[in-house]
């Protein structure tokens, strides 16, 4: 079964068509990288998938459960609030600019949602949070506040915060774009490690080498369309489409 399925997604802002008929499915344990020029609709796609943005048409299905169905008039119809709430727990999202809660300590940033959204036991959540922090190499930072951390550390806290809810699939929207080049490595390392553990992930990135190494599949988007997709080595070394070639040429020079 596909963890995520997006069928014929369309989205426009006022008169600007941003996504035209996007279909995409992600299997368990798969790592999908989305690449493409600025303004091609990558963020909008993630925002529709994570329900931060309402889709106009199409279907959105997580683990066989419909979050969005096509209505009779072809318009997207969202499931009742209660079902959406459950589906909301299937995925996590890591933002480009972290969006940590500045008034919460590192530990509270990670623990608050599991305790107050999922209503889990505090002790259990604490243990999980500590082991996540250890995995992120931040075990000595639990009492810190986000403003006392470097960008790379903040992003690792944000990843831990998302993982603490045990999502089935994790989305990343350019997780390293707000970081200094010397800090990108630490985030990519964490994502690489998650990939080895078979975490299902969809990653929008401008890090071409990383996409090629880590992803099972790469999707090239341009102008609101999926132009080309497939095995990363094939797509990136022998692109079929002219637009993909042009885009990739910018990175090789």
């Amino acid at each position: 079964m596909n963890l995520l399925e997006i069928n014929h997604l369309k989205k426009s802002f006022e008169n600007l068509d941003v996504l035209h008929d996007i279909s995409l499915s992600v299997k368990e344990g798969e790592v999908v990288a989305i690449i493409g020029p600025s303004g091609s609709g990558k963020s909008t796609l993630l925002r529709c998938a994570t329900m931060l943005e309402k889709m106009d048409e199409g279907e959105l299905v997580y683990l066989g459960k419909y979050a969005v169905k096509n209505g009779e008039n072809g318009k997207a119809v969202y499931a009742p609030q209660k079902e959406l709430k459950e589906i909301q727990g299937y995925f996590g999202l890591v933002f480009q600019n972290f969006n940590l809660f500045p008034h919460y300590s590192v530990l509270k940033n990670i623990m608050d949602a599991p305790i107050h959204v999922q209503k889990r036991e505090k002790e259990e959540v604490l243990q999980e949070a500590r082991s996540l922090l250890k995995k992120m190499g931040l075990e000595d930072k639990e009492t810190y506040y986000p403003c006392q951390l470097s960008g790379g550390q903040q992003q690792r806290v944000a990843i831990a915060r998302a993982l603490a809810l045990n999502p089935s699939i994790l989305f990343f929207d350019e997780p390293t774009s707000a970081l200094d080049p010397e800090l990108t490595g630490e985030i990519l390392k964490v994502i690489r490690q998650l990939a080895e553990e078979k975490m299902t992930m969809v990653i929008v990135t401008h890090e071409m080498a990383f996409a090629r190494d880590v992803a099972d599949r790469v999707i090239f988007m341009d102008g609101g369309y999926i132009v080309e997709e497939g095995n990363p080595k094939e797509v990136m070394e022998h692109p079929k489409e002219e637009r993909t070639k042009q885009f990739l040429a910018r990175f090789s020079s």
Partner: peptide
């Protein structure tokens, strides 16, 4: 920042 609302929404608050 609007990102605070969005982060909270994605976390299920």
């Amino acid at each position: 920042p609007y990102g605070q609302w969005e982060a909270a929404k994605v976390l299920g608050y």
